[in-house]
């Protein structure tokens, strides 16, 4: 019973964070709302039995990625202080599309018969590690390569000699 209420509360927080992340004018508030949303997502991960991943989510997403985003906000100098003007057509258009998308997805959910839940499963770290290094070793190596390349790429892009005119 209590788990249900907490579940609903956490889902609400997540969605609230998401809504704030897209609608607030100040982009810094957006970043902070993103962090809120990600916390909610981490709790949902725990509900789904992926504790390790919840911790990873917090460390990586919130601890690294969101901080990087905030860095970028700060470094893009003139902009984070400016507030965007409203463009009603654009808002209406995006709202329309997003709403219909949601409706479509809901309809699909309702009309499929999902298999019955069974809650046994071995989601220990040992199992994950084993899977990573045996069945999914190729994507594992590939992802590490991607990360390497991303770092090199970021260095190259941002290390270019162009200096902004003062």
């Amino acid at each position: 019973m209590i788990t249900e209420i907490v579940f609903l509360f956490i889902a609400g927080i997540t969605l609230l964070g998401a809504v704030l992340a897209v609608s607030l004018k100040n982009v810094f508030y957006n970043a902070l709302s993103l962090i809120l949303c990600l916390f909610g997502v981490a709790c949902l991960f725990i509900y789904l039995g992926a504790e390790f991943l919840a911790i990873m989510e917090v460390i990586i997403y919130i601890g690294a990625i969101s901080i990087a985003i905030i860095f970028a906000i700060m470094l893009s100098r003139p902009m984070f202080q400016k507030y965007e003007k409203r463009d009603l057509i654009k808002i209406a258009r995006s709202l329309f599309i997003a709403a219909f998308l949601f409706l479509g997805l809901l309809k699909t959910l309702h009309s499929t018969r999902w298999p019955a839940a069974s809650l046994e499963g071995d989601y220990s770290l040992r199992a994950i590690g084993k899977a990573l290094l045996t069945t999914s070793v190729l994507p594992f190596e590939a992802v590490s390569l991607v990360l390497l390349i991303a770092i090199i790429g970021a260095l190259l892009i941002s290390g270019s000699k162009e200096r902004p005119s003062q």
């Binding site: 992340a21 982009v27 990600l38 985003i69 970028a72 906000i73 995006s94 997003a98 949601f102």
Partner: peptide
């Protein structure tokens, strides 16, 4: 699904590049 739709909404609406990135994370 809700999270997805909200993310799409942000992707299509926001003009700030960083805000778009945030929506992409969602």
């Amino acid at each position: 699904s809700a999270l997805f739709s909200i993310g799409i909404f942000g992707l299509l609406m926001r003009r700030n590049l960083v805000a778009i990135l945030i929506s992409l994370e969602l």
